[in-house]
Amino acid sequence: MESIIKAINLKKSYGDFTAVDNINFEVRKGEIFGFLGPNGAGKTTTINMLIGMANITSGKIIYNNENVTLNIKKVQNMIGVVADESNLYAEMNGFDNLCFCGSLYGMKKAYREKRAKELLRIFQLSEFKNRKFQAYSKGMKRKLTIAAALIHKPEILFLDEPTTGIDVASVRQIRDLIKKLNKSGTTIFLTTHYIEEAERLCDRIAFIKKGKIIKLDTVSNLSASVEKDNVVEIVFETNFDNIVLLKNLQYKFHKVVIEIKDNKIIKIISKEKINIVPFINFLANENLHIIEAKLIKPSLEDAFISMTGIDLGLMKKEKERR
């Protein structure tokens, strides 16, 4: 796939502190590229360098095979940026905010008004178009901010933490919109601290820590790269006597580790591949009614934790405190 952005040995230092340390990556045309990392990892600094809001210390930025390191202004027409805060004009209504943003890209009045109406409809904000931005809910603010970044139909959309701090319904709507946008051909560069968001939306993800890219790959490759025990989970319809069952299971299948959860779920853990049939037969003989048996694959979360050594819960809390 053709690359639309290339970062070559990109570095950003503030005095002695290196925020981004010689990173290399490319964003492919039409993909959703994710940046995942804790606070201070260098995600926003990287975005800022790519959009021209931060000067680079060294390295190269290439857009569509053209070196624009010293002149990002040249490509600002093809990018849309959604900052980590909704930064539209509080005193202006939704419609005027969108029209104003369109005018910054030189769009003529009739065209920008048409486009603003179209975006308000897509983002389900038409009925609030005359309401002042400051009176919008957090979710609505976020949606309008994304709409504003799309007013000039950019080829690439940068989304910095697009769903942080908003209600569940808006989160779902925004994620659906991101998918739709991507399907319509927009390349998306996304930073998030929600691992499930990255997993659900991104084609490829870069794990970033202390200004360095630890790993970059597709979601499935990242998950598969984790060395983890094989785990099978069996769920029962009713509760069972866990002590007796555990003893019987351990006696019969002594090569595997067996754990019981909530008197209703059995977890079978083994270094080797697990053949599930003997377990099912055994449990059926015990008159237990199985409703589900599944192989637990390593997740992106497992990959992230094993590669970065970062506690995800802590990372999430830190972000939400901001």
Binding site: G52, M53, K73, Q76, I79, A83, N87, L88, A90, L104
Partner: peptide, 13 residues
């Protein structure tokens, strides 16, 4: 309020 960033990101000098 960071709305100035919006202007800095516009393709104008």
């Amino acid at each position: 309020s960071r709305s100035f960033e919006r202007l800095l990101l516009a393709p104008i000098s």
